[in-house]
Computed example of a mutant assay.
Amino acid sequence: MRISTLTMYNLSVSSMNQQQAAFNKVSQQIASGKRVVSLADDPQALTQALGVRQAQALGEQYASARVGVENALAQEENALNSVTDIYSRAKTLLVQASSESLADADRSAIASELTGLYDALLGVANTRNADGRYLFGGYQDDTAPFIKDAGGAVQFVGSKQVREQQVDGNRRMAMGHNGAEVFSRVHGSAGYGVEAAMENQGAARFGTITINNPDHANFGQAYSIEFVEQAGELGYSVNGGAVQAYQQPMQIALDGIELELSGTPVAGDRFNVAPGDALNTNMFTTFERAIAVLNQPSNTESARATRANQLRSGLQQLDHGLDNVLTTRAEVGARLNELETLEVMGGTRKLSQAQTLSDLVDLNYAEASAEYSLRIVGLQAAQKSFMSIQDMSLFKLL
């Protein structure tokens, strides 16, 4: 079979082009350090690599979100630490003010320090974070979460919804707590408390609460003890029930608990007995009542009883509030620990993804070097073969 000169030239040129393309491909791989440079190199590997890169990008977003949540929780932890100090100092002051040996001027001085603590507590409650948002305001950013109403009492007006961040594939985490959870909540484990009605006129004082039977069918109920006059005798009724004789001091039985009462009440006086979360839970109100009663003169037995009752209630409420803050701090600590665990897991996952990506697209330089040398030899052989074909032309003999 006769092969034309044109065919031999075309075959030689095609062979050189193929060798040149293979050489260029290896050169490009060595220059880039990547085995897969284009989709044609390895479609399956490149598709898998794109999936890994998307997972890496998502992991970086989660890592950034974890940093933001960690910063917010760390700032909340600092704020809660300040609240703990304020409550502890307030408790110390209320214990001092409960002493009957103090003069009214001494109690006014204590009230002044309590006022300073009250203002400091309000400042902490309205703290802003690094982004300028209110730390305990929830979703509300335009106004402070705690403001004073027309009567001068501090109320929570923020949002009870808390911002959350996606910190991992299947985990959303709250960036803190709203103000109502911190300053107006009592932990469910809080025991019984007592509050004397602010309008009481008598000299009755409440004492200790003794739990005799926590398994009683009605244990955990709230009670209102109201003093009434019947047939010229002073008695009391519980939750509007039958009137019973009162003699002081005495222990009033209330379905598994007993309340100690002493002093002489008057008709209309009332004491409320209930679990801590069913009484006053607003810690600002606790401060306001304590400051008000300490600034009142105590020149009558009724005034002294009112002061003693309010201070005792205030101490109970501060105990409950402190327990709630410590519980909240424990929640913050648990979240910070979880973030640390997620960060370690994220770092491990990041290394694994990097290794997978490297296995898919990175170049094996030893193999590439050998391939590079082989392609040079192939290209040179094709070029020499072409030159030999040129020498076979009959025109050289003319």
Rank of each mutant, 00 (worst) to 15 (best):
S15G: 11
E70N: 14
L336N: 02
L360C: 05
I211F: 06
I376Y: 00
N337L: 08
A303T: 04
D323N: 14
M198V: 15
G59D: 14
N81P: 03
V377L: 11
S369M: 14
Q166I: 10
E367H: 09
E229T: 15
N213M: 00
G116D: 13
A144M: 12
A370N: 10
L363V: 04
S12D: 13
R349V: 12
E233Y: 04
T84C: 02
L397D: 06
M387E: 15
Q390M: 11
E233G: 02
P214L: 10
D168G: 07
G132S: 01
A382P: 13
L58F: 05
G321D: 03
A290T: 07
F287C: 05
A144I: 06
M16N: 06
A196M: 00
A74Q: 14
D391P: 00
Q56P: 06
A274H: 12
V186P: 01
E181G: 05
T47N: 10
G378K: 09
E181M: 11
E60L: 10
D149V: 10
R335Y: 05
D269Y: 01
A368G: 03
P275E: 02
L261W: 11
Q244I: 03
M198E: 11
D391A: 14
Q247H: 09
E100Q: 14
T92Y: 09
R89K: 07
T306Q: 14
L94C: 04
N178V: 04
R329S: 15
N364F: 08
R335S: 08
Q251D: 08
M8H: 07
V182R: 06
G132F: 00
G123T: 12
N272F: 05
D149R: 10
N200M: 05
G321K: 04
Q96R: 09
Q19E: 10
Y365S: 12
P43K: 04
S385E: 07
T47R: 13
S38K: 13
A217H: 11
E199D: 15
L94P: 05
G59I: 02
G378M: 05
E288P: 04
Q317I: 04
I209N: 02
R349H: 15
V325L: 07
M16R: 11
S302R: 01
A111L: 03
G116T: 04
T127A: 15
L322G: 00
